[in-house]
Lab assay of single mutants.
Amino acid sequence: LEELEQFAKTFKQRRIKLGFTQGDVGLAMGKLYGNDFSQTTISRFEALNLSFKNMCKLKPLLEKWLNDAE
């Protein structure tokens, strides 16, 4: 859980630094990986307001997006 919290915090900082909005991330993930995510979902991930199971599902996809974006 602590690792997920740290990743969510780091993800948000890096996303902002790269100049992407939460909506941008959701759209890009849909185009790149075929998984559409709403701005709300990205927001809830960053705020740790998703279930643990959903957080765990999203984390590898967001890590991949972040690596591709950088």
Rank of each mutant, 00 (worst) to 15 (best):
Y33E: 09
E63T: 06
E3G: 04
K64H: 06
N35Q: 13
F11L: 04
L48Y: 08
T40M: 08
T21D: 04
F52V: 14
A69I: 10
T40I: 05
L1E: 05
I42Q: 00
G19A: 02
R44G: 13
F7M: 03
L62R: 00
K64I: 09
L1G: 08
G30S: 11
Q39T: 14
T40N: 13
E2I: 10
K9A: 09
K59N: 03
L50D: 11
G23V: 15
L66A: 09
W65Q: 01
K59T: 10
E63F: 04
N35P: 10
F7A: 02
G26W: 08
L32V: 03
E63N: 04
E70Y: 02
G34E: 12
A8Y: 00
E46Y: 00
K64T: 09
L66Q: 03
W65P: 01
E46W: 01
Q13A: 11
L58A: 08
R15K: 00
S51I: 01
L61E: 06
K64Y: 03
K9Q: 05
R15F: 01
L61R: 13
R44T: 06
E5P: 01
T10W: 04
E3S: 06
F11A: 04
T41S: 13
R15N: 00
N54Q: 10
T40K: 07
F11Q: 00
K12L: 04
V25C: 05
P60K: 07
G30M: 11
Q39V: 10
L62S: 01
P60R: 05
C56N: 07
Q22G: 06
K53A: 15
E5M: 10
N67Y: 15
Q6L: 10
Q13I: 05
L62A: 04
K31S: 07
S38G: 14
K57Q: 11
W65S: 01
S43E: 12
L62W: 00
F52T: 14
Q6D: 06
N35G: 15
K59R: 12
G34D: 09
L48V: 06
K53G: 11
L27C: 15
T21C: 08
I16C: 02
E46T: 00
S43G: 04
C56Q: 15
G34M: 06
C56I: 11
T21Q: 05
R15S: 00
I16Q: 12
A8L: 03
S38R: 08
I16H: 09
L50P: 01
R44I: 01
D68W: 06
D24N: 06
L58D: 02
D24V: 03
C56T: 14
E3H: 09
N49S: 13
S38N: 10
K9S: 10
L50Y: 10
C56L: 11
D68M: 10
R15Y: 02
K53N: 15
A47S: 09
L62E: 00
Q39W: 12
A8K: 01
K59L: 08
G23L: 12
K17N: 15
R14S: 08
K64G: 11
E46D: 01
K17G: 10
E5N: 08
I42D: 00
I16Y: 05
L66N: 01
Q22R: 12
E2W: 09
L27A: 15
R44L: 11
K64R: 11
R14D: 05
N49F: 03
L48K: 15
K53M: 15
F20M: 10
A69R: 14
K12V: 08
T40S: 12
G34P: 13
G23A: 14
K53H: 11
L32Q: 12
T10V: 08
F20K: 07
R14K: 13
E70I: 09
S51V: 02
Y33K: 08
A8M: 03
N35I: 15
K9W: 05
A28N: 08
D24R: 04
Q6H: 13
Q13P: 04
F52Y: 13
F37R: 02
L62C: 04
E46I: 01
E63R: 04
M55E: 02
T41L: 11
Q13V: 12
K12H: 06
F52R: 13
G26V: 12
Q39G: 13
I42M: 03
M55T: 05
G23E: 14
S38H: 08
Q13E: 12
I16R: 04
G30D: 06
P60W: 03
S51E: 13
E5Q: 05
F20P: 01
S43A: 15
L50Q: 03
L58W: 13
G30C: 13
L61M: 08
Q6Y: 10
R14C: 03
K17D: 13
Q39M: 08
I16G: 03
S43W: 06
S38P: 09
D24Q: 11
D36E: 10
K12A: 13
K31F: 05
L50C: 13
L32K: 15
D24G: 06
G26S: 14
Y33C: 09
G23N: 14
S51W: 00
G26A: 10
K64A: 09
K9D: 07
Q39F: 05
T41P: 03
F37E: 04
N35S: 09
I42W: 01
K12F: 03
P60E: 13
L18G: 03
R44S: 14
F52G: 08
D68G: 12
F37T: 08
N49E: 15
V25S: 01
E3R: 03
F11N: 00
E46Q: 00
L66D: 00
Y33S: 09
L48C: 13
E2C: 04
N35E: 14
K57A: 10
Q13Y: 14
F37A: 07
K59S: 06
Q39D: 14
W65H: 02
A28P: 01
N49R: 07
A8P: 02
F37V: 15
W65G: 01
G30Y: 13
E3K: 05
G23R: 07
C56G: 09
A47H: 05
E70D: 10
N49M: 06
M29F: 04
R14F: 03
E46V: 00
E5G: 11
M55Q: 10
Q6I: 12
G19D: 03
D24Y: 04
L48I: 14
D68V: 09
L18F: 04
T40A: 12
F20I: 15
E5T: 12
F45T: 01
F45R: 00
D36L: 14
D24W: 03
L58I: 10
K31G: 07
K17P: 00
A28V: 08
Q22C: 15
M29W: 01
R14M: 06
N49D: 15
S51G: 14
T40P: 10
M55Y: 04
F45C: 02
K57S: 12
L66E: 02
G26Q: 11
M29E: 01
G23T: 12
T10K: 12
Y33H: 15
K12R: 14
F45Y: 05
D36H: 07
Q22V: 13
F52P: 02
F11E: 00
T21A: 04
E3P: 01
K9L: 07
F37C: 14
L58E: 02
N35T: 13
T21Y: 01
A28D: 07
A69Y: 09
K53Q: 11
